[in-house]
Design a protein around this nucleic acid. Structure first.
Ligand SMILES: [Zn+2]
Ligand SMILES: [Zn+2]
Ligand SMILES: [Zn+2]
Ligand SMILES: [Zn+2]
Lengths: 176, 176
DNA sequence: AATAATATGTTATGTTATAACATATTTAAT
DNA sequence: ATTAAATATGTTATAACATAACATATTATT
């Protein structure tokens, strides 16, 4: 099982996350002859500023600041589309938000663990899970092409805070 | 594994699906002292007219016809909210659409198999899957509260049509 | 019958996403 | 270098999905 739950859900040197992500992006784009333009790189950079999925209009706002000019939604969505197509970014449908992929070159489960308190999302790959979903699909005679697996709950940080404080700062990152 | 993939993805007597769903709803509402008002029952009925998840504004339109008067979005969303809270209906986030639950009283995996060609969605419960996700969560020290598992692909019908015709009627029910 | 609780109606607006077409920039071909 | 083609971005408008806030109506309880 490949996962970034440690870094996504716990204190860590996040600059390394950002730099690694940008390096991977440059590599992948070079390799695929895709153009990582300033706008696209800025969007990727913004998405990687945290482990919390970011909405398109939050991105728009921050991109405008970063670019020193106003940015229209299509610009943001185009950059996102580019990054998603390359596998550098994932959309999390239940949040209408986007998150950087920590391992764009690896096999995927598209499994996300989303903290309902702090909003951070970790991604994990799990071949056993993929196998199980494949066999369930086979039994249903369903030709599996892709998947989106969202787990909602509390990350270690937020759960610890809850149980020690008795009280919880609720940021309402939830789908219920 | 409990699943409605047979009926969702293959020809069947759908009136039985509808009637069974309405019966279950009446039972559950009686049991929980919840009021299945005409609006709510109509919405549930409309959702159960097919195995394809229905959007709120499609519902609005059809509910207006059925009610003989114009209906505003809040009315639809309120009815949906009621039904979702009772577990009679699920929202499928990647489709922004709603589908009837075939087994509201059973344990859930919230696992959906969504045909990208015809748009129909089957639901399945799978305790092995739930166990696996629970243990993956444990390993990540993630407190699992709920989940949404979406599989995209081709149902038997559509896959058969594809492979026999060589050509496929593409209705573009897709998330990619 | 009066009160409280629940449900619906109504208007307005917030939020997310895309269509359509114009312009600019980069790449490839001549 | 010049032209042509392909790619990327700018711009305007609008589509699609969802909720806030407050008024009215209906149902249940006292
Ligand atoms: Zn990090
Ligand atoms: Zn990923
Ligand atoms: Zn049916
Ligand atoms: Zn269900």
């Amino acid at each position: 099982m490949l996962s970034n739950s440690r870094s996504a859900h716990q204190p860590h040197n996040h600059l390394r996350c950002i730099n690694a992500a940008l390096d991977r992006a440059r590599d992948l784009c070079a390799q695929k002859n895709a153009r990582l333009t300033p706008t696209r790189e800025r969007v990727l950079n913004l998405i990687w500023q945290s482990h919390q999925p970011l909405g398109a209009y939050q991105l728009q706002e921050q991109l405008a600041k970063l670019s020193g000019k106003s940015i229209a939604p299509p610009t943001v969505y185009r950059a996102i589309e580019f990054l998603v197509n390359l596998g550098l970014v994932h959309r999390i449908p239940s949040l209408n938000a986007f998150i950087g992929c920590p391992f764009p070159n690896s096999a995927h489960s598209n499994l996300f663990m989303i903290c309902q308190n702090c909003g951070s999302a970790a991604e994990a790959t799990h071949s056993g899970l993929n196998d199980l979903l494949q066999s369930a699909s086979n039994r249903a005679q369903f030709i599996l092409k892709s998947q989106n697996l969202e787990l909602f709950g509390l990350c270690l940080q937020c759960n610890t805070a809850t149980t020690t404080n008795g009280e919880q700062v609720n940021h309402d990152y939830t789908n219920d």
